[in-house]
Amino acid sequence: MIAPLRALTRPQGGIAGLWLILVIVAALFAAVLTPYAYDIQNLPNAYQPASAQHWLGTDEFGRDLLTRLMYGARTSLSVSATAISISVLCGMVLGAAAAWFGGWLDRIVTMTVDLTWSFPEILIALILVAIIGPGTTGVMIAIAVAYLAQFTRLTRAQIMTLKGETFIEAARSLGAGDAHILFRHLLPNALAPVLVSAMLATGDAIILEATLGFFGLGAQPPVPSWGGMMSAGSALVFKAPWVIIFPGLAVAITVVAINLYGDALIAELDIRARLRRDA
């Protein structure tokens, strides 16, 4: 797959991609990149503004904000990405089965999905976290279910259009079975739009994760998450505004970067757009 790399050569795709790589590297190598621990309190050092020792300052317990931001990226990114991956996988199976087999299966899947589609994602996620209980696992499942409808609908619509293409009939005329047509023709052709939409949904999922974290439903202290850090900072808006500003900026810039990179990816992945450019 070269399209994700080609997307980096586009101007906004490149800048956005660079930021995302930076965040991912910071999340992965947080332990090596910072001399501080994310959970050890140092009360005399609390409320320090940005300085050479603490680039983004310290929070109410004297912990280095940049360190917590890096470890927070670990939570936010892994929870959102895992949740969306689960959602995409289940959504594709459900959507493909509904579109391919049709009949009562299609009706049940479509009806259930439309029912959840009519609620905002945050509401579904809140209900689910309330049932499962707070914590990263609960949030992950809640986000996965909240976005399931989107991927099921998208996959179903993709496969419904592809089903009518002549190359599917051609495969059938050669004696291809259901599994062959589904795995060699329908799913590969439906994959690109689903992956791009998964990419964009990851951005939304980061916001959803931060929101749940802000309500105290996500990762439990002292494990940092961007939402949880903002929640703590909301009490210190006048005393130490950096405690809420920097996690907020991290969420905002990351989400914008994901959207920009997703746009570049859309332009690169679309076969028809590529055709038009080549012609």
Partner: peptide, 20 residues
């Protein structure tokens, strides 16, 4: 539309065998 846009000609021509 009778050829899968994601398959190379080699894959298109291998399909009759794979389908069987």
């Amino acid at each position: 539309s009778s050829l899968d846009p994601r398959h190379t000609l080699a894959e298109v021509l291998a399909e009759p065998f794979r389908a069987q």
